[in-house]
Lab assay of single mutants.
Amino acid sequence: NNDALSPAIRRLLAEHNLDASAIKGTGVGGRLTREDVEKHLAKA
Rank of each mutant, 00 (worst) to 15 (best):
N1A: 12
N1P: 12
N1D: 14
N1R: 07
N1M: 10
N1G: 14
N1S: 14
N1H: 12
N1T: 14
N1F: 04
N1L: 11
N1Q: 14
N2G: 12
N2D: 14
N2I: 14
N2V: 14
N2T: 13
N2L: 13
N2C: 06
N2Y: 04
D3E: 13
D3Q: 12
D3A: 09
D3G: 11
D3P: 11
D3K: 11
D3W: 02
D3F: 02
D3C: 06
D3M: 07
D3L: 07
D3T: 09
D3S: 09
A4W: 15
A4I: 14
A4D: 14
A4H: 14
L5N: 05
L5I: 14
L5H: 06
L5W: 04
L5R: 04
L5T: 06
L5E: 06
L5G: 04
L5P: 05
L5K: 03
S6D: 15
S6N: 07
S6K: 04
S6A: 09
S6E: 12
S6F: 04
S6Q: 06
S6L: 07
S6Y: 05
P7I: 09
P7V: 08
P7M: 11
P7F: 05
P7E: 15
P7R: 10
P7N: 10
P7L: 13
P7H: 11
P7Y: 05
P7D: 15
P7G: 06
A8T: 11
A8G: 08
A8V: 10
A8L: 11
A8F: 10
A8S: 12
A8M: 11
A8E: 15
A8D: 15
A8I: 11
A8Q: 10
A8P: 04
A8N: 08
I9E: 03
I9G: 01
I9S: 02
I9R: 02
I9A: 04
R10P: 01
R10V: 13
R10W: 06
R10D: 06
R10A: 08
R10E: 10
R10L: 11
R10I: 15
R10Y: 05
R10K: 10
R10T: 07
R10N: 05
R11G: 07
R11A: 12
R11H: 13
R11D: 14
R11L: 08
R11F: 08
R11T: 07
L12G: 03
L12Q: 07
L12N: 03
L12P: 01
L12M: 10
L12H: 06
L12C: 05
L12I: 10
L12V: 06
L13P: 00
L13F: 05
L13M: 05
L13S: 00
L13C: 04
L13V: 03
L13G: 00
L13A: 01
A14Q: 12
A14D: 12
A14P: 00
A14Y: 12
A14S: 12
A14R: 15
A14L: 09
E15P: 01
E15A: 15
E15M: 15
E15N: 09
E15I: 15
E15K: 15
E15W: 15
E15T: 12
E15D: 09
E15F: 15
E15Q: 15
H16Q: 03
H16P: 00
H16D: 01
H16L: 07
H16R: 03
H16G: 03
H16M: 06
N17W: 05
N17Q: 09
N17S: 08
N17Y: 06
N17I: 03
N17P: 01
N17R: 08
L18K: 01
L18G: 01
L18A: 04
L18M: 07
L18H: 02
L18I: 15
L18R: 00
L18Y: 03
L18N: 01
L18T: 05
D19G: 04
D19N: 10
D19V: 11
D19W: 05
D19E: 11
D19H: 09
D19S: 12
D19R: 08
D19Y: 05
D19K: 10
A20N: 03
A20H: 06
A20V: 11
A20E: 09
A20D: 04
A20I: 12
A20K: 06
A20P: 14
A20M: 08
A20W: 08
A20R: 06
A20Y: 07
S21Q: 09
S21A: 12
S21F: 08
S21D: 09
S21W: 09
A22F: 10
A22H: 10
A22K: 13
A22P: 02
A22N: 11
A22E: 14
A22D: 14
A22Y: 09
A22V: 13
I23V: 08
I23T: 01
I23E: 00
I23P: 00
I23A: 01
I23K: 00
I23W: 04
I23Q: 01
I23H: 00
I23L: 10
K24E: 10
K24D: 06
K24F: 08
K24H: 09
K24M: 12
K24T: 11
K24Y: 06
G25S: 05
G25E: 01
G25M: 03
G25F: 01
G25K: 05
G25A: 09
G25D: 01
G25Q: 03
G25I: 04
G25R: 06
G25N: 02
T26W: 02
T26S: 11
T26A: 03
T26L: 04
T26D: 02
T26M: 04
T26I: 03
T26N: 04
T26G: 03
T26C: 02
T26R: 03
T26Q: 03
T26E: 02
T26V: 03
G27W: 03
G27P: 01
G27Q: 02
G27L: 03
G27A: 04
G27F: 03
G27H: 02
G27S: 03
V28D: 09
V28E: 14
V28Y: 08
V28L: 13
V28W: 09
V28R: 11
V28G: 07
G29R: 08
G29T: 05
G29H: 08
G29D: 10
G29E: 07
G29L: 09
G29P: 02
G29V: 04
G29N: 13
G29K: 07
G30M: 03
G30K: 04
G30L: 01
G30P: 01
G30T: 03
G30A: 05
G30D: 04
G30W: 00
G30I: 02
G30S: 05
G30E: 04
G30R: 04
G30H: 03
R31T: 14
R31M: 14
R31D: 04
R31P: 02
R31K: 13
R31G: 06
R31Q: 12
R31S: 13
L32C: 02
L32A: 02
L32G: 00
L32Q: 01
L32F: 05
L32S: 00
L32I: 15
L32P: 04
L32E: 00
L32V: 10
L32N: 00
L32W: 06
T33E: 03
T33Q: 04
T33W: 01
T33C: 03
T33A: 02
T33V: 05
T33F: 01
T33Y: 01
T33G: 01
R34D: 08
R34K: 13
R34L: 15
R34W: 15
R34N: 07
E35T: 10
E35S: 12
E35P: 06
E35L: 12
E35K: 13
E35N: 09
E35A: 12
E35M: 12
D36Y: 01
D36I: 01
D36W: 02
D36T: 01
D36L: 01
D36H: 01
D36S: 01
D36P: 00
D36Q: 01
D36A: 02
V37F: 03
V37P: 00
V37G: 00
V37N: 00
V37H: 00
V37A: 04
V37E: 00
V37Q: 00
V37M: 03
E38C: 08
E38A: 09
E38P: 00
E38L: 15
E38D: 08
E38G: 05
E38V: 14
E38H: 10
E38Q: 10
E38I: 15
E38F: 15
E38Y: 15
E38T: 09
E38R: 11
K39Q: 12
K39V: 09
K39F: 10
K39H: 11
K39L: 13
K39Y: 12
K39M: 12
K39C: 05
L41G: 01
L41V: 11
L41E: 01
L41H: 05
L41N: 01
L41Q: 02
A42C: 06
A42W: 09
A42Q: 12
A42G: 09
A42K: 13
A42P: 04
A42S: 11
A42Y: 12
K43Y: 13
K43A: 14
K43M: 14
K43D: 10
K43G: 11
K43L: 14
K43S: 11
K43H: 11
A44E: 11
A44Q: 14
A44W: 15
A44V: 15
A44I: 15
A44S: 13
A44T: 14
A44N: 13
A44D: 10
A44M: 15
A44K: 13
A44H: 14
A44G: 11
A44L: 15
